[in-house]
Design a protein around this nucleic acid. Structure first.
Length: 459
RNA sequence: GUGAUCGUAGUUCAGUUGGUUAGAACGCCUGAUUGUGGUUCAGGAGGUCGUGGGUUCGAGUCCCAUCUUUCACCCCA
């Protein structure tokens, strides 16, 4: 018998108590904001039928889906010739997959429950998703997304509220003011991108255009032009983009500049009008959002977006986007429910965790642990301690008793390791007098108090 | 998917041109302290050097494969 060392699948992690406390802080913050804006919680299964997932995320996305092998004798349904190609084999041996994001399962949920839902339907959903990616900085194979989506309305109020929610979440997360997260909420509209492609006479090449222009801040204008050229955009068309690359100023000024480039494109102008309306609504709220930045080059990879798109980028930490979203018109169409538009946002908890960790932004007293530990010298004291414990818990004081009356030193060490601030020591003298020793672990001081006095003190 | 990179005690890491019994710090356990943690002091336990092959009289060290880590590209939260 050889003992095997346990290990985790690539790109997955365990979380200890200290990490979970911080993660809960993030999750609770996001949840609080979602609820405040009228979103209701739902959950969907970890696995979906592959037919639901495939074809929604683009070719790259399909490759990153985790597939689940069919149960039983899965080979019995295959032919010898299927073994020649993974493409032929796959659908015969796997019909389920792990969810890749929360938006597509949500669209499925909406279609399946359309007759029970009241539209517009606003839901939030906080669950893990899985991607068969190669792990690297800020990239895991299992990670949590926190989505809020509003479906069944075209109102641009939803877009505006998304901006407000993003701002509120990141304001609340920065409980510790010593450092701060410098971030931008980037916004754009897929219709503007489509309009640009149309305006330069390259209609049909939207995807290549989006992929290339999205890299602008990373690789620069020249490289983007090179990439466009290599994707078959002719030089005259590329040159027409120069005014776009030159756009600067505040959000309103940028919008005006884009409009002039898009004069010939109906869809492009629709995009700029939508963005303008979002800015107007934000003004009506009377909220200043200096983090909001119109970025004509923002594209985002997911292929289902059709209107506004969002992305939140940290500026003082090297990390990809920590939040993203946008409007999608055709997602429920895939499942037989046309003409339903949705818009949503997703926070990437794992990346936000890494960013807050790097900037040391967690509040100091984030630990919700035991407040008092009862220790006992012998069995009689321990039995007495159970009554005390019961009283403490009835008074809603987080408390525990060391499970056995072992050496007091060991019990003390346990309290110390677990950072329990108070310890009650019970021995024969304490039982006799009814006054228990309450030790303050931080000060090292100790006083004799009755159980009631202890409860009043700790409450 | 492409290209690099890492792996030695619970943890972070040393380990010479290949050469006896693989070290340190921190942590852990025991005691100094039979009614008290965190400090101090003394002692102790703990490693088939990621895994599997190969070269060699001899491999932690060299070669190959594989898994894992980290990172860039592609793409993405």
């Amino acid at each position: 018998m050889s003992k095997q060392k346990p290990s985790l699948p690539k790109g997955t992690r365990d979380f200890g108590p200290a990490e979970m406390n911080k993660r809960h802080f993030i999750l609770e913050t996001i949840k609080k904001v979602y609820q405040k804006y009228g979103y209701a919680p739902i959950e969907t299964p970890a696995m979906e039928n592959l037919s639901v997932l495939q074809g929604k995320y683009g070719d790259e996305g399909d490759q990153l889906l985790f597939k689940i092998l069919n149960s039983g004798d899965f080979l019995s349904k295959t032919e010898k010739t299927d073994l020649n190609s993974s493409k032929d084999l796959l659908p015969k041996i796997a019909e389920k997959g792990l969810r890749y994001d929360l938006t597509v399962p949500f669209a499925r949920f909406v279609v399946m429950n359309q007759h029970n839902l009241s539209f517009p339907f606003k839901r939030y959903q906080i669950q893990p998703v899985w991607r068969a990616d190669k792990p690297q900085k800020g990239r895991y194979r299992e990670f949590y997304q926190c989505d809020a989506d509003a479906i069944g309305t075209d109102s641009l109020l939803c877009e505006a509220e998304i901006v407000l929610m993003i701002k509120e979440v990141f304001t609340l997360l920065q409980a510790k003011k010593a450092n701060s997260l410098d971030y931008s909420i980037k916004i754009n509209n897929r219709k503007i991108l489509s309009g640009l492609v149309e305006a330069i006479g390259q209609k049909g090449k939207e995807t290549d255009f989006a992929v290339a222009i999205d890299k602008l801040d990373k690789i620069g204008i020249d490289k983007v032009k090179e990439e466009l050229s290599s994707k078959g955009f002719d030089q005259a068309a590329i040159d027409k983009l120069d005014p776009v690359f030159a756009i600067s100023g505040n959000n309103r000024e940028k919008l005006q500049a884009v409009k002039s480039v898009l004069q010939s494109s109906e869809v492009g102008l629709k995009g700029t009008n939508e963005l303008e309306e979002v800015l107007n609504i934000l003004d009506s709220f009377g909220m200043e959002v200096p983090e909001l930045e119109l970025d004509i080059t923002l594209a985002r990879g997911l292929s289902y977006y059709t209107g506004a798109i969002f992305e939140v980028k940290p500026n003082n930490v090297k990390m990809g986007s920590i939040s993203g979203g946008g409007r999608y018109d055709g997602l429920t169409d895939n499942f037989g429910l046309p003409n339903v538009s949705g818009v949503g946002i997703s926070f990437g908890v794992d990346r936000i965790y890494d960013v807050l960790e790097e900037l040391d932004l967690y509040p100091d007293n984030n630990i919700t642990s035991t407040k008092v530990l009862i220790t006992a010298f012998d069995q009689d004291s321990w039995n007495y301690g159970l009554k005390v414990l019961s009283s403490l818990r009835n008074a809603e004081i987080k408390s525990e008793i060391y499970p056995e009356p072992v050496k007091i030193k060991k019990q003390m060490k346990y309290a110390n390791d677990k950072q329990i601030p108070f310890v009650i020591v019970i021995g024969s003298e304490e039982i006799k007098s009814g006054k228990l020793a309450l030790k303050n672990m931080q000060e090292g001081t100790q006083e004799m108090l009755s159980t009631d006095e202890i409860i009043n003190f700790l409450k």
